[in-house]
Each structure stands twice: as C-alpha cells, then as structure tokens.
Design a protein around this nucleic acid. Structure first.
Lengths: 329, 329
DNA sequence: TATATATCTGTAAACGGTTACACATGGTGA
DNA sequence: TCACCATGTGTAACCGTTTACAGATATATA
C-alpha cells in the first residue's frame, strides 16, 4: 500500500505539502505541485479514506436503509439515490431491515461506527427515538415521519385518482385493498381512495392485507375473489398485489378489463410487460431517490437541519387493465 | 462522541485495559472487567470502526459490485450475500456498474480506499487487470472468470434442460434467444441449448440480443415475431425477455402454451405471477449469494487464495407456458 | 531602509483505536 | 530462599491522514 509518506519522499517534500496539493488548501508552489502530482501518478497513489475519515470525523459514506431490496419498488429508489450520490463522490452502505427494529438499530449503529455523513431511510421508522439523537442528518424516503426531512409521493392524491378513474370507467362494485396498517404511505393511498369512493354513488368493499410481498400477494388475490366474487374493479395497494390479482382473475376466467378493472400502485418495471399491461398510479421512484440524495447532500453541506418535506406528484398510467373512458363516458 | 478514553476514565483504568476487554485479549481481572463493562453500558459506548480499521488495515466492510440493482435478478443475489454477511457482522458497500468499466474502476478504488476486507463482484470482469493486483480477496458471483474464486449456476446444463423440455413437449420450430455476447453465463445457456437443439430432429432459429433490460425486452419480443412468425417454442435468454415474449405472444393473439411454448431463465420473483405462470430454468439466486458470501469469508479468514469455483445446479420449474408432457409424450 | 504581508514549506500533534513492551505482584517448585 | 511463570495493568508507539503553528524567503508599502 502506498501512503502519503511515499509520495512525499518521491517528490522530495513533506507530507504536509502533499496533503496540501491533495486538498487544494494553503499555498504550494506550482513547481512543487507538479512534482507532487508526478509522484502521485507514478506511484498510483490514492489517499486512504479511513485515515481521512478518522481525522475529520466524517467519511464520504452514507447509510441507506430499506425494507427489502427484493421488492422491485425499492431498487428504483435506491438506484436513484445511488446515482445522485455517485455524482457527488459519496458511496453507500446499505442494509435490508425487513421492517425489523433490531436489524434497523444494528445498521444504524454500524453507520455511526463508520462515521457516515448522512443517511437515507426507507424504513417504517420503528425506532424513532434512535433517529433523534443521531449525529448526522437523515432523510426519509417514501416515508413521512412528522417534522423530519423527507421525500415521498402524493399517496393520498394517488388514491383519489385511482378511485376516480375506476368510477369514471364504469366499475360499480369496487374492491379497495388496504395495505399494511403500519405503513403511512399505504394509509394515505387508502384514505385518498376511500374519500372518493365514500362520496360517490358506488358500492365498495374494503379488504385488509398485512404485507406487500410476492409470497403473500397470491394469497390476498385468492381471498379477494372468494370473498367478493362479484367485484368489477380492484384498486390494489401496490403493483405486486395488482399483479397477483390480475393473475388470479385471468385464472378464474375473467376477462380483463371487460369483467374487471384493475389499478395498481407504483409502476414497477414489470407492470408494462404484464398481459394485459397494468394500469397503475405511477410514483416517480427513481426521481424520488435522486431528490432524497440531493436533499441529504444539502443538509450535509449546510450543516443545518431544515425541516424539508418534498412531495412529488403521482400520475395515472393508463394501460390495459382499465377500459377506455369513452366506452363509458 | 464517547471514546475509549472516556470509558477508561469512567472505569478508572487505562485505555489498554478497556481495549483488552473489548477484544477479549490478554489478561484482565474479573472485577476490572465488570467495571469496564459497567462504564461501557452507562456511556453507551461503541468503538469507532474507523479507528480500528486504520490500525488493523482492515475494516468490516465488504464491497459488492453489480450491474444494475433494478434488474430483478440481482437483488436476489445481493440479498443472499447481505444476509450471510450480516450473520458474520460484515457490512456492505455497493455500487451499480451498468457494465461500465469506468464505474467499475471507481468503485473498486473506493473499496480499496475504505479498507474493505473483501469483495463480491457480479460484473462482467471488464477490467480483469485491476482485479489481479487487489489487496483483498474477490469472489465472482454469477460470473465465471477463469481461475478465480466464483459462484455460479450451471448455465450450460440449464440451456440443455430448456431445450430438452421444449422438444419433449412438442415444439418443432424453436427460437433460441441468445443473450448479450459479452456475458459468459448467457453464452453457457446458449451453448447448452444449442448443443441439444443441434443434435435433435427439430428446426430452430437463433436470435441475437444485446441486453437483458426491461426497456429493450419489448423490442426483442416484437422483432422475434416479425422474423419468426411461425415459431412454436421460445427459449428466452432470461425471465425478463421471456416476460416480454409472453406479452407479445398474447397481444398478437397466440394461445399459450397451445400455439407457443415459452421457457425463461432465472425464476425471478414475478415469474409465478404472470399469466400463464412462466415455466423457467431456476437459478438458486439467493443461495448463490449466500454461498458467495460464505466463500469470501473463508478466503478472508484463511487469508489464502484458494481457487474455488462453486457451481450450483439449476432446475426446471414447470409452470404453464409449457404443455404437460403426457400430452405429447 | 524598515516593516508588514504574501508565499512556501516543514514539524509535530491530533483523530480513536490496538498492541508491544515494561513493570509489578503473587504463587509454585526446587 | 530463589528462580520462574502466570496474572494484571499502564505507557507509548503506531495506523495514514490533516492542520495548527512556526520559520523562511520574497515582495510590497511606507
């Protein structure tokens, strides 16, 4: 391993001078600078971030917490965050929490021990007390804890749009799938849809589910058609559940969208490749990840903890699990 | 921030003693041990990993390189690796390379600068020369560079199985989709299938593609049916392409599996939720990730660079894009 | 010419841990 | 009683950086 001392020796200067050219601080003669750069080149030197981090008490690492990278929505967010962080030369330590408080605490401790300079959390803020005494800024992504910096999509409006589109396109016995109780964004979607459904002239059922996972989605879908066999429109809590519902509907011989309309939530990558392609409420996940990263960087650089909450708009992506509006309007 | 010195003071001992109880090295009197533990408790002390890493020249971080976390196959691998690493108290720094040599180099440099203790790479070994002079062990995952530790699935056998199942189930004008040219695992699948197809009494077409992404998959699918409209069986290069093919087949009015059989590769989470559910060659992705982590840990702990190549078996997952065998056998 | 200021560089002390080494004590066997 | 060893603890050097401080020289200002 080549250190700053090797460079100093090769360039015939002290380590302080090398450090100065590295960081572009203080005065260094142009000729000296050139010699140092030459030495760096020829030795392929690059500074040890660990030593830097120790002295500065800040690394260039940021922590990223997410429930489960295996759920296709989160990689989109993570990728957005990562791409933006990379542009600013920050790197990411990540952890899957499975919405498990112990794992969450473990990772947060790791982040502290590694001098991370900030953190993006997509977890369900299980241990809010921990978050409060952190020595680095945190941005919540796809989550909306009160009074803390966050980036999220307008779930409530998404729910409203889904319900309106469903009604506009002729469904009259709508099933509204309510996602996991503990997740605020799921609640928002539900509330928004409920609001519209309640005040409209339609019948509707509410079905509660407790997870968003692939494993369980099939089960919810089966349960749905057992309980509400006559439903003619499903507003799913997310695209995974919607995918399962579409699957089960087709399996039981329903014609989509003639017999049954389906609207998902998220616009996960595979949605457009389903058949029929899934109509859904799109969250701009990649952009959300980028925004979270930008916000975090601002907080880091200003060193002041503004309360900033960025709400990004959702949009209805009309594909083919919903009917054309002129067929009924 | 509370340091080892604070603990030492609180416990009335020297930092060396605190360090000794922390690491369970050397002699420490039981009473002293208790006092130190009490001090640690009451101060909520946890050691700074950065300082440790600097002295030891080894962190507890491992680097993880993958092409794109947004592709649903990779999160499975990553999750397996992460879960195993977590058990051993290692943490992960990760980077998306997009199969781009510059990003790859950047991340590898970051890993070095942060004293990572090892690395798992799922990239297409673009810059093999870099990998050679690394100061930490590397395990390749889902990639098979010659003579380097790696964990991968038996792609060739997977290709053979896919072709055999296709033929056994009655397809006679088979289209074999060849994945990106630069990717060894894609080549293996192709070779395996080609081998069986060549020696069987069937017609087949080969269609070359240059990526595995969602964005492009639709295009490949359209191209396929334009060029080989009469094909009655598609062996796709992976599940994403298979999903697109299924979509396009359904869209163009084909009946699956009666008119056309489809076999994918990977067994990505959404495969079973497609309709009809996708028959595919399963790679044990999560287990592969775990195995890679285990292998890396072994390499780290033995400190000797065995050449170990772990090949995991693939399996045919019979779902509904293929016909039942007794219908034809 | 004297003094202030800008430029350039090096020495050494941090940062928060780990560990080599030294030293002290007490017990054991000869 | 002496030599030896196991036990217990502290001092200080070290890991690879950054930076406060000091010292040297050159240039500008009065």
């Amino acid at each position: 391993m080549t250190t700053i001392r090797d460079v100093a020796k090769a360039a015939g200067v002290s380590v302080a001078t090398v450090s100065r050219v590295l960081n572009e601080t203080g005065y260094v003669h142009d000729d000296t600078k050139k010699r140092v750069h030459a030495a760096i080149e020829s030795l392929h030197y690059s500074p040890n971030e660990v030593a830097r981090s120790l002295y500065r008490r800040k690394s260039r690492l940021i922590g990223l917490l997410l429930p489960d990278i295996t759920n296709p929505f989160f990689p989109l967010l993570a990728r957005g965050a990562e791409d933006e962080m990379r542009l600013q030369d920050y790197r990411i330590i990540f952890g899957n929490t499975d919405e498990n408080a112990e794992k969450e605490r473990d990772y947060i401790q790791t982040f502290q021990q590694n001098n991370v300079i900030g953190m993006i959390s997509m977890t369900n803020n299980l241990s809010m007390n921990i978050y409060k005494k952190l020595s680095f800024p945190v941005v919540f992504l796809d989550r909306t804890p009160a009074n803390l910096p966050s980036v999220f999509a307008d779930g409530k409006e998404g729910g409203r749009i889904a319900a309106r589109e469903m009604i506009k396109r002729g469904s009259r016995r709508i099933t509204l799938i309510k996602g996991p109780a503990g997740i605020q964004t799921a609640k928002d979607r539900f509330q928004g849809a409920l609001e519209v459904l309640s005040s409209a002239n339609v019948n509707f059922y509410v079905m509660a589910t407790s997870s968003f996972s692939f494993q369980d989605a099939e089960r919810w879908a089966k349960e749905l058609f057992e309980k509400y066999a006559d439903t003619d429109g499903v507003i799913a809590s997310n695209d995974i559940v919607a995918t399962a519902v579409l699957h089960e509907a087709l399996r039981t011989g329903r014609s989509i969208p003639a017999d049954l309309q389906i609207i998902g939530f998220d616009d996960v990558p595979h949605s457009s490749l389903l058949f029929p392609p899934l109509s859904t409420i799109r969250q701009p996940a990649y952009e959300m990840g980028k925004e979270a990263a930008k916000l975090l960087i601002k907080l880091i650089e200003n060193n002041q903890l503004h309360e900033v909450n960025i709400r990004l708009p959702v949009s209805f992506i009309e594909r083919s699990t919903t009917r054309k509006v002129d067929e009924h309007g």
